[in-house]
Simulated assay, not measured.
Amino acid sequence: MTLLSQFEIQEIDQTVLLWLNDIRQKTIAAMQQRLDVHEKRDNRDLVTNVDQDNEKFINDKIRHFDAEAHIVSEEGFGDHNQDMNGRVWFVDPIDGTMNFVKQKTDFAVMIALYEDNQPVLGWILDVVNNVVYHGGPQIGVFANQLRLKPPIDDNLSEGIVLLSGARLLYGMFGYDKIAKAALGYRVIGAAGPSFIRVIMGQAIGYSSKMMPWDFAAGQVLAKTLGLSVSDIDGKALDMLSSNIVLVATNRAHRDILTLHQS
């Protein structure tokens, strides 16, 4: 249980919303300019000047606001955490960089706060549509100021499932069986927009290989809304390493685990 009071949590939530408003303005402005794009591991793993600038901006805000906390972030400006003791912030400055560069849509900025490994708050900014999905177990989940209700607890066969395209293509983790069992399947190519579709009830579930900054915010929001979040074997996620993440309605989650294990 978090040591923070509900008032403190609401204050943090409103503070981060102000940061994200600034980040959105900076990101939209940068999209009108020529992006500085580089490869990380290969030509499908991209980083831009916006990823780096956003991370520096957010990390600087966090360090001034919560000096004792640690930061786990994508582009190397955070800390090298060995545990989840105390307050830990997760930062994904541009989630879905390929989409950001090539499509100019279906990307997000994500921030999350955990305390002693327990979820406190999460924020997913849909930059293009100017909507922040935010909240946590103490205050509920909101799309901007609209409080969200839990999605309908449908089975896998009753909804659309979102999957990692590369792993679906090669039949990994039973994704081919999962796609066939669902009413339909889609590939979005970014964690934040995929989590948004699940918490909004537009998709029955989502699974992909993710790093902690990819799933930290989405896990807070999904669990607060009563959705199931685990790795593909049904175990709790390791917050400091990569996981094959599965978020889904409770019924679809059981259906997917059964297919994966069969």
Rank of each mutant, 00 (worst) to 15 (best):
V187T: 12
V91W: 00
W123H: 02
W19K: 00
P93C: 10
N129F: 07
E75A: 00
Y170A: 14
I256F: 05
D176Q: 14
G184W: 10
G136D: 01
W213N: 01
V127P: 07
M200R: 14
T48Q: 05
L257H: 06
G234H: 03
Q14P: 05
Q219D: 12
L113F: 00
V161W: 06
A252S: 09
D126L: 13
S73I: 02
G205F: 06
T15C: 10
M98S: 15
D92N: 03
N129K: 13
V37I: 12
I152V: 13
N99E: 05
L257V: 07
L17G: 08
V247N: 08
I28H: 09
R254W: 08
G201I: 04
V120Q: 00
G136S: 02
D42P: 03
F142E: 11
I160G: 10
Y170T: 15
R197N: 11
L148V: 03
I58W: 01
A191R: 04
L113G: 00
M239V: 12
R251Y: 10
V50H: 06
N155G: 08
K104V: 11
M31G: 14
A181R: 03
V131F: 08
N54W: 02
I244E: 12
L17Q: 11
S228H: 10
N250D: 12
L20Y: 02
M211F: 11
S5F: 12
A216S: 09
L4D: 13
S207D: 05
G136V: 02
I160F: 12
F57H: 06
H134A: 06
F57M: 09
D60H: 01
S164P: 11
D176M: 12
I256A: 09
G140M: 07
I204R: 11
Q138F: 05
V245Q: 09
F7E: 15
Q261N: 14
R44F: 11
P137W: 02
A191L: 10
S242H: 15
I23G: 06
I124F: 04
G174T: 09
A191C: 13
G189S: 04
N59M: 04
L17N: 12
A236T: 13
Q138W: 08
R44V: 10
L148C: 04
L168H: 14
A182L: 08
Y175C: 13
I124E: 05
N243I: 04
N54A: 07
W19N: 00
W123Y: 09
D22L: 08
I178Y: 04
D92M: 02
D79K: 00
L18S: 13
G192W: 04
G192F: 05
G174E: 07
L121N: 01
H253S: 08
R34N: 15
P193K: 02
V101T: 09
I199C: 03
L259I: 13
I124T: 07
S157Q: 11
A143F: 07
I62E: 00
P119L: 00
L163T: 09
